[in-house]
């Protein structure tokens, strides 16, 4: 699943670590700022050098933290666009399945059974999900195979696998981009 671009646990951990660093940096900045203010109160401008160094450190921290904030935003945005891409691809696959089911003129019940078949369930499980007898499911399967012109479960699967593999990958990505836009 990771090769398809779903944000994996690694990027998630990265985002969490970055967020933690940002919060830590911001807290450090606030302590510097507090020190500058209290020192200014008690020392006035006598310790200008000390104050300048501290204020400078605070500024550097703020700049560094700003970059981290932008980096975190970039990571999160990339993750979000990948999610959209996957959802688009999933929708695309659904459309392909719908197209074939309609082409084969499957009945509503047969569509349900065929979908469960594609998901890899066996006849007993399908029967228990649909609340029918196993014999009924077996008959429905036979109907589906006949209408689809295949001679079994694996051939039914391969119709859709074929569709996935023969399709240039660019088509899916374009679909994702269109949905994202």
């Amino acid at each position: 699943m990771n090769e398809t671009g779903k944000p994996g646990p690694k990027t998630k951990r990265r985002a969490i670590a970055l967020a933690g660093l940002i919060v830590a940096n911001v807290l450090c900045t606030s302590f510097f700022a507090m020190d500058v203010i209290t020192d200014f109160e008690s020392l006035g401008t006598d310790e200008a050098f000390h104050l300048t160094v501290e204020a400078g450190a605070a500024v550097v921290l703020v700049v560094g933290t700003s970059f981290m904030i932008l980096e975190l935003r970039r990571i999160l945005q990339r993750n979000a666009s990948m999610e959209i891409g996957i959802r688009a691809a999933r929708g695309e696959m659904q459309a392909v399945i719908d197209k074939y089911f309609a082409e084969w003129r499957l009945s509503d019940a047969e569509r349900d059974v065929a979908l469960l078949l594609l998901k890899g369930l066996d006849n007993e499980t399908i029967a228990s999900i649909r609340g029918t007898a196993t014999g009924t499911v077996r008959a429905q399967c036979a109907g589906i195979y006949a209408k689809a012109g295949v001679d079994g479960r694996s051939q039914l699967m391969s119709v859709f696998m074929e569709e996935l593999l023969s399709e240039p990958l660019g088509a899916l990505r374009d679909g994702a981009a269109a949905e994202a836009a």
Partner: peptide
């Protein structure tokens, strides 16, 4: 029919949507 089936396929049809990023939560 088939469409509805997949949409609701998760844990009892619950959709899990990432909303709060790590920084917001932290």
């Amino acid at each position: 029919n088939a469409k509805l089936e997949t949409r609701d396929a998760g844990e009892a049809g619950i959709r899990i949507i990432p909303v709060w990023d790590p920084l917001v939560r932290l």
